[in-house]
Simulated assay, not measured.
Amino acid sequence: MPRCRVVLAEDHAPMAAVLRALLGEVFDVVAEVADGEALLAHSTALAPDAIVCDIGLPRLSGLDAAERLLARDAHACIVLVTIDVDPSCVNRALAIGVRGYVAKPDAGEELVPAVLAALARRVYLSSSVRPAPPSRHP
């Protein structure tokens, strides 16, 4: 069975190496780019099964790039991996149709499960951004 093809967008080289290694255990990383404009170009040209991108990309943010990609193809499989755990950012990402949102500190354990969930058309939020369960008071 062929492995799923992933485009990775991360502008910080050491973090890109970590993410590439994590993804490479399960997927074929077919391109690695360092800015949002390149992400748009490579995603269009390569038609990957999934896109993993940082939000804080130069030239065009990962969130804006994701929004443009999803406007072209509402079924695009996009997982954001970011240091930004602000609920308003998470909510915006979900509102535009992103399927995964992984905090970078959680990536070691949760990036691959997030991409697998996204490929199965499920939404995945890493543990650092999931809403806290309601507390129960007697």
Rank of each mutant, 00 (worst) to 15 (best):
V18M: 10
V18F: 04
V18S: 10
V18H: 07
V18Y: 01
V18E: 03
L19D: 00
L23N: 09
L23S: 06
G24D: 10
G24T: 10
G24V: 11
G24H: 12
E25V: 13
V26N: 10
F27L: 13
F27S: 06
F27K: 07
D28Y: 04
V29T: 12
V29R: 12
V29D: 05
V29S: 11
V29I: 12
V30Y: 04
E32A: 15
V33I: 08
A34C: 12
D35T: 11
G36W: 03
E37F: 08
A38Y: 01
L39D: 03
L40G: 06
A41E: 14
H42A: 14
H42K: 09
S43Q: 02
T44F: 03
P48R: 00
P48I: 02
A50H: 01
A50I: 05
A50M: 05
A50K: 01
I51T: 03
I51W: 00
V52E: 00
V52M: 00
C53H: 04
I55A: 03
I55D: 01
P58D: 13
P58C: 06
R59G: 05
S61A: 04
S61F: 01
S61D: 00
S61K: 00
L63A: 01
A65E: 05
A66N: 01
A66D: 04
E67P: 02
L69Y: 00
L69D: 00
L69I: 13
D73W: 01
A74I: 14
A74K: 10
A74W: 02
C77F: 04
C77V: 11
I78E: 01
I78Y: 01
V79R: 04
L80R: 04
L80S: 00
L80Q: 03
V81Y: 02
T82H: 02
T82G: 06
I83E: 10
I83D: 13
I83G: 14
D84V: 15
V85P: 01
S88R: 15
C89Y: 15
V90Y: 06
V90R: 05
N91L: 13
N91R: 15
R92A: 05
A93D: 01
A95S: 15
A95L: 09
A95V: 09
A95H: 12
I96R: 07
I96Y: 02
G97W: 02
V98N: 02
R99P: 00
R99T: 04
Y101F: 15
Y101V: 04
V102N: 01
V102A: 05
A103E: 03
A103H: 05
P105W: 08
P105R: 08
D106I: 07
D106G: 05
D106H: 08
G108R: 15
G108H: 12
G108K: 11
E109N: 15
E110N: 14
E110H: 06
E110G: 13
L111D: 09
A114T: 08
V115R: 14
V115L: 14
V115K: 09
L116D: 11
L116G: 10
L116P: 02
A118V: 06
A118I: 08
A118P: 05
A120R: 14
R121W: 14
R121A: 15
Y124M: 08
Y124K: 09
L125T: 08
L125A: 10
S126F: 06
S126Q: 12
S127E: 13
